[in-house]
């Protein structure tokens, strides 16, 4: 048996409450976003090197990508 975390054990089905269509004029499917949009709003799973803090690494990424805001969502505690 494959090892699974709690949320991976739950099999979810999609149920329709009421039919509805979306207007192509508004928004955009995530997979259709241009790279500029991803650079402004996206997530990266980074293998943080040992040594610099998460905060410092977020700073490096700011420099690499030349963007203004980079945050992090938790790092392994040592």
């Amino acid at each position: 048996m494959e090892n699974k975390l709690l949320f991976e054990q739950i099999e979810r089905k999609v149920l329709v409450k009421k039919e509805s269509v979306t207007d192509v004029k508004y928004g955009k499917k995530p997979e259709e976003r241009a790279i500029e949009e991803l650079l402004n709003n996206g997530v990266i799973c980074l293998n943080k090197p040992q040594g610099p803090s998460s905060h410092q690494v977020a700073d490096y990424i700011k420099q690499i990508f030349n963007v203004e805001k980079v945050g992090h969502g938790g790092t392994l505690e040592n």
Binding site: I35, L38, L39, V43, V57
Partner: peptide, 30 residues
């Protein structure tokens, strides 16, 4: 997982050759 080096390489490829294929693999939609 990607390393800081992967990020740098992908961004350079995008900036110098306008090829965003690597960068698109690394940066995922929110």
């Amino acid at each position: 997982w990607y390393s800081l080096h992967d990020l740098k390489d992908a961004y350079e490829l995008y900036k110098t050759e306008n090829n965003d294929s690597l960068l698109k693999k690394i940066i995922k939609p929110t």
